[in-house]
Amino acid sequence: MWHRTGILCACIGVAVVASGCNDLPSSIGAEFLPDTTQLQVLSSELVPLIESVRTEQVAQPLFNTGWLFLGRYRELEARVLLRFVDIPDTLAGVTAEDILEATLILSPERYALGDTAGGATVVPFRIHPVVRFWSPLAIWDSLFANGDAATLDLTPIGSWNDPIPLRDSSEPVRVRLNAAGHALLAEWFRRQADSQSIYGVALVPEPTATSIRAFATQTIGQLQRPLPTLEVLYRRAGRVDTLRLSGGYASSFVRPPADTAGKLLLQSGVQYRVRLRVRLDALPPLAAIHQVQLWIPVDTAAFWTGNREFSRVLRLMPADSAAPGYIQATATYDAATASYATKSLAAMLEFWLRHRRSAGELLITLPADVLYSRLDRIALLPGMRMWILYSERKQP
């Protein structure tokens, strides 16, 4: 009995092995078939690999980024909102007449966009009280899309009209507040004592401004850079004292230009980026991607470049936020061809292909260190080209 059972089990085992050897290999097993690899090239000049390309804008606030932008250049207008966070609650008795002098102090940075002739920038501006709440998430459209009256008191409390020198280390800009500014400060002291909201001030460029200038502020968790400061000299109980208020809430608001229709633009400040859709249906299902190159032509005559060199590197990342970070890539500028070229997008396309996608979308942006420290524009041209080098296994 046991002998016959052992023989039966052995036969079943042989049959299973034999049938397994005669089966066609699965799609997974086909990856390991030897000596059947054939290299192939797909080009967007012959196959529609690039399905669409368009510019999109991201609603990205410029709050406590370390840089403040103020001024005008072409269609751009940049404003600054400041809120002071260390107002004492013991000055309710200080009146406008008790305030002897009040000065807003700003620290200019070297960066400027626009007219820098003569080694200086012309950025005249006014200071206005803010009359409504604004948060770190606020952007231009949420505050100024319907005009200024809903957000600002239209009576200025101070102004600046002098050129600001362009130096690596410039003297601070010191703006004296007028009598209306003194009255505003006295109101702030009363409101702080009563635990009422204080919304700060806005710096608004004059229409005669010919450039946009950067000013310093601190980033979150970084305390070395100078903050905008409001210095108040006041009299109380026969004594003269000085109060220094720090602009702990500091944000830039940049009005997007209206000339973007039909253009492919990358621009920091207004956060323009390019979305590109890639088709994968021309690749066989068992393809292994080895190299992918994307060629991005640019129109350097349409660049907006400040007094720094434009970014020589672009960042390419999958539009899918759940995709792993390692599949991101970069593109480097080549002056000889006036274009950017990627080293390889193979990891990104391989990720899409392995997840059974017939298409994938990638975003072309400026590097993170440029997105918040400049307002430069890079203009891409239509006619991007892509090449895919892949290996194909013969189907058994």
Rank of each mutant, 00 (worst) to 15 (best):
I12D: 06
A15D: 08
A18W: 04
S19N: 06
G20L: 04
N22W: 11
D23W: 10
I28F: 15
F32D: 14
L33A: 13
D35I: 08
E45C: 11
V53L: 06
E56I: 01
V58Y: 01
P61M: 09
L62M: 13
T65Y: 07
L68H: 03
L76P: 12
P88M: 11
T90M: 02
T90I: 08
A96P: 04
I99H: 01
E101V: 01
A102Y: 08
L104C: 02
L104I: 01
I105R: 14
L113F: 04
T116C: 03
A117N: 01
G119I: 00
G119C: 00
V123S: 01
P129R: 11
V130Y: 08
L137S: 14
A150I: 11
D153I: 10
L154I: 13
P156S: 11
W160R: 10
N161S: 14
R167T: 09
E171N: 06
E171M: 08
R174A: 10
V175L: 09
R176I: 05
E187H: 13
R190F: 05
R190S: 13
S195F: 11
S195Q: 13
Q196P: 01
S197K: 07
L203C: 05
L203W: 06
V204L: 11
E206C: 07
T210F: 03
T210Y: 02
I212K: 04
A214T: 09
F215L: 13
T219S: 15
R225T: 06
T229V: 15
L233S: 14
Y234S: 05
R239N: 12
L243H: 07
R244Q: 15
S246A: 09
G247N: 03
G248S: 07
F253K: 07
F253Y: 15
P256Q: 06
P257N: 04
Y272P: 01
R273Q: 11
R275P: 03
L276P: 04
L276V: 15
L276D: 07
D281R: 14
L283Q: 12
P284E: 13
Q291T: 08
L294T: 05
D299S: 09
D299P: 07
T305P: 03
N307P: 09
F310R: 13
S311M: 10
R312A: 12
M317W: 12
D320N: 08
Q328M: 05
Q328W: 00
Q328V: 00
K343I: 00
L345Q: 00
F351N: 04
W352G: 07
S358M: 13
E361W: 06
T365W: 01
R374H: 08
L375C: 08
L381A: 11
L381R: 15
P382D: 07
R385K: 14
S391I: 00
E392C: 03
K394V: 00
Q395W: 00
Q395K: 06
